[in-house]
């Protein structure tokens, strides 16, 4: 056999403890270095978008009342922003551009608010609409202008005034399990969905996202508009409140049994059983046995 294999088998034998320790330490050092670079990168990008992000999230609740939408914002300013930011793909009248972006007809204020407040729109460079929700790209004031303008050119559902205070969580749980959990999971941790994976000829959506960071308002917007492959639900406002209340409950629900392992069920459980449980008992077995007689 080749010298390469001989070398492999030689180092594959029992190395001295110090050498193994050195290798582990070296590995940890590399990991730490990678982690450090990643953290720096995150911090940098956080700094760049921090301003708009913080104002955007607070804006979601401001939009909740729908008062700003009803009062009619500055349509001409909204129109200007729409032409700069949206029209290239969605068309000047929101009619869509083949191969570029879908029509906005029927989306209304709720559809626009969902796409803009979750950061799905405007699309980041090389982005796909299936990307999990992110911080808003635009400021709250800009989003408000666009929401008003889209409601004007592409009428559709208005923003439901979701109010989770006092909503029946048990009723929300039933609604959630019957209507939402088949794609978003019983723990709202998200999951894969099948299907053609293409929307308007564009890279498609095959993930039902985690709802663990969704606001009550975003949940309401999604329910009434049915973004992308999600069906549109005609729930009365009371039921939307209940569903949102249950999802908010799940987001901060206690996990009495310890770490919830992502709320993803037996797959991570099996992983932990083998990678932590089995590996630990094997290590212990090795430790309490001595070397075979040599």
């Amino acid at each position: 056999m080749s010298p390469r294999l001989q070398r492999a088998s030689r180092t594959g034998g029992r190395a001295p403890v110090s050498a193994r320790l050195a290798r582990s330490v070296a590995g940890l050092a590399v990991l730490a270095a990678i982690g450090g670079v990643a953290l720096l990168g995150l911090a940098g990008s956080g700094f760049a978008v921090g301003q708009s992000a913080s104002s955007g999230t607070s804006g979601a609740s401001a939009a909740a009342s729908g008062a700003l939408v009803q009062s009619g914002g500055d349509l001409s300013a909204g129109g200007d922003l729409y032409m700069q930011t949206c029209a290239a793909c969605h068309g000047v009248q929101g009619q869509g551009v083949p191969g570029q972006g879908p029509t906005l007809q029927g989306q209304g204020a709720a559809g626009a608010a969902f796409a803009l407040y979750t950061g799905r729109m405007p699309l980041p460079e090389n982005g796909v609409p299936s990307q999990p929700r992110d911080k808003p790209i635009l400021t709250q004031a800009q989003i408000q202008l666009l929401v008003n303008y889209v409601a004007h050119i592409a009428p559709g559902p208005t923003i439901p005034p979701v109010d989770t205070s006092g909503a029946d969580i048990a009723a929300g749980r039933q609604l959630f399990i019957n209507n939402c959990a088949a794609c978003h999971g019983p723990d709202a941790a998200g999951g894969a969905i099948g299907g053609p994976g293409q929307i308007n000829g564009l890279p498609g959506i095959f993930i039902a996202p985690s709802l663990h960071s969704a606001t009550a308002q975003i949940i309401g917007d999604a329910v009434v508009t049915g973004p992308a492959p999600m069906p549109k639900f005609n729930f009365p406002l009371k039921q939307i409140d209940e569903i949102a209340a249950y999802i908010k409950y799940l987001q901060s629900a206690p996990t009495p049994g310890g770490d919830a392992l992502g709320g993803l069920g037996p797959v991570p459980e099996g992983y932990v059983a083998v990678v932590i449980g089995l590996v630990l008992v094997l290590l212990f077995a090795r430790l309490i046995s001595r070397r075979p007689l040599e």
Binding site: I177, A181, A182, C183, G185, P186, G191, A192, A208, L264, G265, P266, V267, E269, G270, Y271, A273, V274
Partner: peptide, 8 residues
Amino acid sequence: AVPAQPDY
């Protein structure tokens, strides 16, 4: 509900 797996 998804994900729906048996134990490993």
